[in-house]
Nucleic acid binder design. Structure first.
Length: 272
DNA sequence: GTCCAGGCATGCA
DNA sequence: TGCATGCATGGA
């Protein structure tokens, strides 16, 4: 990967396996929007980014500092996804899926945002999830640029009532969000500490949270805690698993979460 | 009107 | 341990 700076943008060349819509709008992150020029804008870690594919290059409207501090890790640019895909393609179903939908990466989101987002996601559809999170950020996040808001932190959300969350449309999950915000802001739950744990410990810690079960925990671990070996199973993946009566193939090992994203996308487009 | 969505807590066996 | 049920909301 070649990184160049041009005025107030970063140009990336030689990035393999990065499809913007497949990665930013496939149900792992809920805050990215496609612009009329085909670029994508979103906020993460309190920073606004606009990213656009231009031929074989990617153009990022950001500073070198933010690129190094945030986006390089967020897009996991130093990981060889092409090699991961080659290995996953030993499985026939994933192979055909990757051929059709090449370029899905697992984003490294903030643990807090991932956890809150996937609590909201339960028994919900992606369109509604986006709406709730959008209203949450708009109402309680900081405006980082014109019309763009950060994801509100735990301290901010702990000041809300259950009814405030309900007003955003969070429904019965509101009580989970309220208690989580309180626990994190009071230091009873320490996400940074969980991030340093091994998978088994981290998973157990998340499962102890009110409103967090196996599926939400695995999504948070995969998308917010960098555990690529997590394989979240939702209603779509339950259908996919019928194609794997003998369990997951050996070639998934270590990158089950990457395979999962391809299969999730395939299922949503092909199974009903 | 019914069914469903990136499920979970609770009660009960 | 496993299974049944209720849960908020909006789109299909």
């Amino acid at each position: 990967m070649i990184i160049r700076q041009e005025e107030n943008r970063i140009i990336l060349e030689g990035v393999k396996c990065l499809d913007l819509p497949l990665t930013l709008d496939c149900g792992q992150a809920f805050r990215w929007e496609e612009r009329e020029d085909g670029s994508w804008s979103g906020v993460a870690f309190g920073k606004l980014l606009n990213i656009k594919k231009d031929g074989e290059r990617f153009i990022l409207k950001t500073t070198p500092e933010d690129f190094d501090a945030v986006w390089r890790g967020y897009f996991d640019l130093d990981r060889d996804y092409a090699a991961i895909c080659e290995r996953l393609k030993r499985d026939p179903l994933v192979s055909s899926t990757i051929d059709e939908y090449y370029g899905i990466r697992i984003l490294n989101q903030e643990p807090w945002e991932a956890l809150v987002s996937f609590i909201i996601s339960q028994q919900n559809n992606i369109k509604r999830i986006k709406g709730i999170i959008n209203r949450l950020c708009r109402a309680y996040g900081a405006e980082v640029a014109d019309g763009w808001y950060s994801f509100p932190d735990a301290e901010t959300l702990s000041a809300l009532s259950v009814e405030d969350f309900e007003a955003l449309g969070a429904g019965y999950r509101s009580k989970y969000l309220k208690r989580l915000a309180d626990s994190v802001s009071q230091g009873i739950i320490d996400l940074e500490k969980i991030k340093k744990m091994n998978l088994a410990e981290a998973r157990a810690a998340l499962l102890g949270i009110y409103g967090v079960g196996i599926k939400v925990a695995d999504c948070a671990l995969l998308f917010g805690f960098r555990f690529l070996e997590c394989f979240p199973v939702d209603v779509w993946m339950k259908r996919v698993l019928e194609f794997y009566p003998n369990g997951l193939p050996e070639c998934f090992k270590g990158y089950e979460g990457v395979a999962q994203q391809y299969l999730f996308h395939w299922a949503r487009n092909n199974l009903k």
